[in-house]
Each structure stands twice: as structure tokens, then as C-alpha cells.
Design a protein around this nucleic acid. Structure first.
Length: 427
DNA sequence: TCTGGGGTCCTAGGACCC
DNA sequence: TCTGGGGTCCTAGGACCC
């Protein structure tokens, strides 16, 4: 059975979100920075033209920012998340056969829709997203996800395509000409480690990869390699994934505002990360069986050191207080007073739903899920829901605020916070 | 001085079982 | 005491994505 996928990819998404409320920046070079204002994670076309790469460390580019009057924003993920939801809602009305792949990309399965001309359909959708949400998008349409991805990249770069490229009807020779110009590292699934490996055996372009023997591809790239060759030849190997697939893990981590040797600062950071991860567990109605807690020093400094501790919880749970206490014991055991810590992470895995929780040998549920714990957590979450996130919290979080990252240049949360609504003046 | 955060999947090796 | 293959589970690490 033949398949047709569309990839809807937002152009310079974070920058486009900022411009939505700052139309005065439409033609200015704009960048958005990561947490701690450390490096560049989104660039406008004007910023790309200044040769500011993705991931550029801010301290190395300050001069370029100054010389070119680049407008700089700290990341405002609350705003981007809300805009992303609006786009997903619009696309779900187009078809429920949708996979929300990331904050700025969605795949649609068009196989069952009766669309006579995919190209003009794509241009229409692109127009609709722009007029209803205000974000420019590029759309690629093809028989496999990998091809749809390449098509959308092409549509993004070529203004003559008006936002959409349909590869389903492209003659073979023309498709080969397109593939010839795509370097291997631009193919979805080929990253910085595999690209040199493939180049070493003479595979430089998407065209050469598509003509590679599946056996050799598997040998060099793994199981993924063989599928990639098929995908490039229009045989779909990666189906549309359901949007509500259960999570495998929940991770919270932060680079500190400044490096620290103070155990109280670490304790506060772990408490805070754990609280956020546990809240997400409860929202998803999940319990975690295991946690990895890790501390690391700055990897760009000599003596880089990363320690982790694997924790099996006494019983699967989502209780902030119990889990924090458990993790603090492990952190105390890891702590090295001579290390300048730079970052902390907590990773929750082996997630299960409470319904599948087995009782222990004595047929009773652990205290983690006792009525008492449940009621306390419900009250806790309800208060924060009603009066604002963090209005009540565990005291450990307040041992120190010194670890908290900086975000000095963050724009207002225009669409999700009453205090930060945009204002308009009529005269 | 200053380099993000949140995920998924695959694989290799060891322990253990029959 | 020694011998072998196949299977599963776990851990750790590597690779990718946005």
C-alpha cells in the first residue's frame, strides 16, 4: 500500500514566536538563547546570513551581535509551548492522523485523504497556519518521513515554492538531481559521528546513500541504515507514531547560574528538579520505579568529572517528599567537596501506571501510594494550580537560590500569564 | 569569566537460567 | 569436573533527534 506523509516544519520557530508580538523585528537579525543565556538555539534568516551557527556560544559572538545590532532573547519556553499547541490544534482539524514530532514539527498521514494536488494543498495549509496562528511554516510531502523531511528543508530554502514541496509526483531524474545537492549530514538520522564514517567509504550525498547496498548501510550505520536507504527510495519504514505514546522517561536538569562547591546549593537544586519531575509524573498519572541522579563539573574545564547514582525506589512512586529524601541520601554519598559543580540532572525511568502496580509480599501498597500520601499530593497540587506554581513547596528547595539559571532577556509570557499580557494603546 | 535541555532507540557485555 | 548453545534481563554507553 502506498503511503503519503506531510511534514509541517515551523521556520525559525522560537524567533517567529518572538516576532509574533514584536512585528518591529520582522527584518532585524534575531537570536534566541538557551538557558543561562549560554548559546544560540534559534536564529532568524538575517542572523543565519551573519554566519551565526546553531549552538554558537554567546561569549564568542558578542562582537558580531554588537556590530550588527542583533536582537537577543532569552528562551521563553512557556510562550513557545503555547504557540506550538495552537498549531497542533489547527493541524488536528485538518486530519486526526497526526504525529506531533517536536515543539515545531508535525507529521500528517495523508494516505487516506482525497487530495488531488498535494502541492497546492501544502501551500494552502502553509497560508492557513500563517494567517490563523501567525507562524511561517514549510511543508514537505512524500512517500516516506525521511523524504518529507528533505522536501520541507528544500521548501524552506527556496522561496519560489511558496512554502510547500510535493515529491510524490517528481520524476526520478529530477529527484536524483535534488538528492545530489544534499550533503549526507543533512539526511535525517545521520549525525556528526556517522557522517564522517560514511564519507570515509565515499558516501557524500543523499543520492549516494540512496544507492548504497542495504547490507553495507546496516553494517556501517546499524539497523537504522538499512531503513534509511529504503526510506530514501520511497519505501516507508517509519510509520506515523501515535501522539499519546506513553513516556519512557522524564528528565529534569539544569546548568547552574554559577559553578558551586556548596552542598546546600546542590541539595536545593536536586530538590527543585525532583519536584518538577514528580509533578510531571503525577500529571501524566505515572509512577517511577528508578531514578538516575547525576552531578557534573564543567565539561569545558580541565578535570571534567561526571558522577551518577542509580537509585531503585523502595516502591514505584511520584511523591516529591519521599523521592527527594531518597535522592538526597545518594547525593550526599556522591558529593565531592573539592569539585566545582556545574550541572545536576534527575532522570526518572521504568515508569508505570498506578493500575499495574503490584502489591508487595504482604498484599499492602507501600506508603508511597497510601491514601495519606495521595491526599497530601492532591492538596499540594491543587493549591499550586489555584494560586500559582511553587506557591507551596518543600523547604529543601529554598536552601539556596544560587543555582538558578539566568534569563535576563526573556520576553513577556504574552499568552499564558495575566500579568504579562501585551498592552495596546488607542489614541 | 562565558558553551542548553529533554527525549528515543540500539547495542554490547555480563549475569543468570535451562 | 568439564562441556555447549540459546534465551532473557540488566546496565552502561553511544548515537540520533529537535
Amino acid at each position: 500500500m502506498s503511503t503519503t506523509f506531510a511534514l509541517i516544519d515551523c521556520n525559525n520557530f522560537f524567533v517567529s514566536c518572538e516576532r509574533l508580538f514584536r512585528p518591529d523585528l520582522a527584518t532585524r537579525p534575531v537570536v534566541v538563547l538557551s538557558s543561562n543565556d549560554g548559546c544560540v538555539i534559534a536564529r532568524s534568516n538575517e542572523a543565519k546570513a551573519l554566519d551565526i551557527p546553531m549552538g554558537a556560544p554567546v561569549f564568542k559572538y558578542r562582537q558580531i551581535f554588537r556590530d550588527n545590532a542583533v536582537v537577543i532573547f532569552s528562551a521563553n519556553f512557556e510562550l513557545y509551548g503555547d504557540i506550538s499547541t495552537r498549531i497542533a490544534r489547527l493541524l488536528t482539524r485538518v486530519t486526526p492522523q497526526i504525529e506531533i514530532y517536536s515543539v515545531d514539527e508535525s507529521f500528517l498521514d495523508l494516505s487516506q485523504l482525497n487530495i488531488p494536488d498535494y502541492g497546492s494543498w501544502g501551500r494552502q495549509i502553509s497560508q492557513r497556519v500563517l494567517s490563523e496562528v501567525g507562524i511561517p511554516v514549510s511543508i514537505g510531502i512524500a512517500a516516506s518521513k525521511t523524504l518529507a523531511k528533505l522536501a520541507s528543508e528544500r521548501a524552506k530554502r527556496d522561496p519560489r515554492l511558496a512554502g510547500a514541496l510535493d515529491l510524490t509526483t517528481t520524476p526520478v531524474e529530477q529527484r536524483q538531481r535534488i538528492f545530489q545537492d544534499i550533503p549526507i549530514q543533512d539526511v535525517w538520522g545521520i549525525g556528526w559521528r556517522l557522517a564522517p564514517k560514511l564519507k570515509a567509504v565515499g558516501i557524500q550525498t543523499a543520492l549516494q546513500l540512496s544507492q548504497m547496498s542495504p547490507q553495507l548501510a546496516k553494517q556501517l550505520v546499524g539497523i537504522h541504515g538499512r531503513q534509511l536507504v529504503s526510506e530514501l527510495n520511497g519505501l516507508s519504514c517509519y510509520p506515523l507514531e501515535p501522539t499519546h505514546k506513553p513516556r519512557q522517561s522524564i528528565m529534569r536538569g539544569r546548568t547552574f547560574g554559577e559553578d558551586t562547591t556548596d552542598p546546600l546549593v546542590i541539595e536545593a537544586a536536586i530538590a527543585s528538579l525532583t519536584a518538577r519531575a514528580c509533578l510531571q509524573l503525577r500529571r501524566a498519572n505515572l509512577l517511577a520505579g528508578n531514578v538516575v541522579v547525576s552531578l557534573s563539573t564543567n565539561r569545558h574545564k580541565p578535570g571534567y568529572n561526571h558522577q551518577s547514582s542509580y537509585v531503585t525506589l523502595p516502591m514505584p512512586g511520584a511523591d516529591t517528599g519521599l523521592i527527594t529524601a531518597e535522592l538526597q541520601r545518594h547525593v550526599a554519598g556522591m558529593f565531592n567537596p573539592r569539585a566545582a559543580y556545574h550541572r545536576a540532572n534527575v532522570l526518572f525511568y521504568n515508569l508505570i501506571s498506578p493500575a499495574t502496580l503490584q502489591t508487595d509480599l504482604f498484599g499492602t501498597l507501600s506508603v508511597a501510594d497510601s491514601d495519606h500520601s495521595q491526599r497530601r499530593l492532591q492538596a499540594f497540587d491543587a493549591i499550586n494550580q489555584r494560586h500559582g506554581a511553587g506557591i507551596i513547596r518543600y523547604a529543601a528547595e529554598d536552601l539556596s537560590r544560587a543555582w538558578q539559571p539566568k534569563h535576563d532577556l526573556r520576553s513577556p509570557r504574552y499568552t499564558t500569564n495575566w500579568q504579562e499580557l501585551p498592552t495596546a494603546q488607542v489614541s
